[in-house]
């Protein structure tokens, strides 16, 4: 597979503070990539470097073979930078049309693109409205729409669903999922469940260092098989009961009412999940969810 983004020994210093330290990764064209990390980990700095907004102190980044900000990337790389706002004096349609024209579309085609992209985020009715008249969530969706003008190959979304209500966050997820066969999305978010649903690759940054660069593996390729069980309420003796199951090797309480269950090694087809469900049924325990594998949260932390 071809690498659409390659970063080598990327460093960014702000005075004595290392925002990024020797970050090195490559991203292949395809399924969405998650950029995860605590506040101040360097996610936005990395996004800004990829978009060409800031220059790295040292190191090299190539996006589709070009340095960030290169004119060859116009229309191919789009981004929703964190906290970036549209001009409050112009209507949404006017500004998005302006962006379309900068990307090389005619006035008519730009208008069509504006309507298409606003429709994708469910905001076709705000065409002639000014950004200041929209709610925070709607403004966010409009700025997501601007990333989809034309046919970008890479779209970077920094905290795209932050501030959105669950319904619209879901809409954004659906847009990402539906377009991910044509566009490689790079998503930064604190919502690990969201990233887990969408992404197949994770870049985990902590204090400017890339701690993990992994592909979320399918359960069948795991050497050890795991299940994550979430209960509706706390059940007494559940860990002991789970550990007594023949197909279960080990059980860990990962957080309140959530258990990580490791299947017995070499017994991938031992039906551990069936055993767990039968145990719940037998004891009349209400489970909330059983997840095939480790959750992203458990993988990272």
């Amino acid at each position: 597979m071809s690498h659409i983004i390659q970063a080598k020994n990327l460093n960014k210093n702000y005075g004595h503070k290392h925002a990024l330290s020797n970050v090195e990764f490559s991203i292949e064209k395809g399924a969405p990539v998650a950029l995860v990390g605590p506040n101040g980990a360097g996610k936005t700095t990395l996004f800004s470097i990829l978009c060409g907004y800031i220059k790295p102190s040292s190191g090299e980044v190539l996006i589709m073979g070009h340095p960030p900000g290169d004119k060859a990337l116009f229309g191919k790389l789009a981004a929703l930078p964190q906290d970036a706002q549209l001009d409050p004096r112009f209507s949404i349609a006017h500004q998005l049309k302006f962006y379309g024209q900068l990307q090389g579309f005619s006035a008519k085609k730009s208008q069509h693109e504006v309507e298409r992209t606003l429709d994708l985020v469910g905001l076709l009715d705000v065409l002639n409205v000014k950004p200041s008249e929209l709610s925070h969530g709607m403004r966010k969706r409009v700025t997501i729409a601007q990333t989809l003008i034309g046919s970008p190959e890479i779209v970077l979304l920094d905290e795209a669903s932050a501030g959105l209500d669950p319904l619209h966050a879901r809409e954004v997820r659906e847009v990402v999922a539906s377009l991910s066969s044509d566009i490689t999305f790079i998503l930064s978010s604190h919502d690990l469940n969201e990233l887990e649903r969408l992404c197949s690759q994770v870049l985990y940054l902590e204090q400017g260092c890339l701690k993990e660069h992994q592909t979320l593996t399918t359960p069948s390729s795991d050497k050890c098989r795991y299940f994550t069980l979430r209960m509706k309420q706390q059940e007494e003796g559940i860990i002991e009961a789970l550990q007594q199951l023949e197909s279960v090797s080990h059980v860990i309480l990962t957080q309140d009412r959530e258990f990580l269950i490791k299947a017995v090694a070499g017994h991938e087809d031992a039906g551990t999940d069936i055993d767990v469900l039968q145990l719940c049924h037998k004891n009349n325990w209400q489970y909330a969810q059983i997840f095939n594998g480790k959750t992203l949260e458990n993988q990272l932390f």
């Binding site: 060409g52 907004y53 229309g75 930078p81 970036a84 706002q85 549209l86 001009d87 962006y99």
Partner: peptide
Amino acid sequence: RGTLRFISLRAT
């Protein structure tokens, strides 16, 4: 405002 970030992805 950050508007320049949108523009700079489309113009040098």
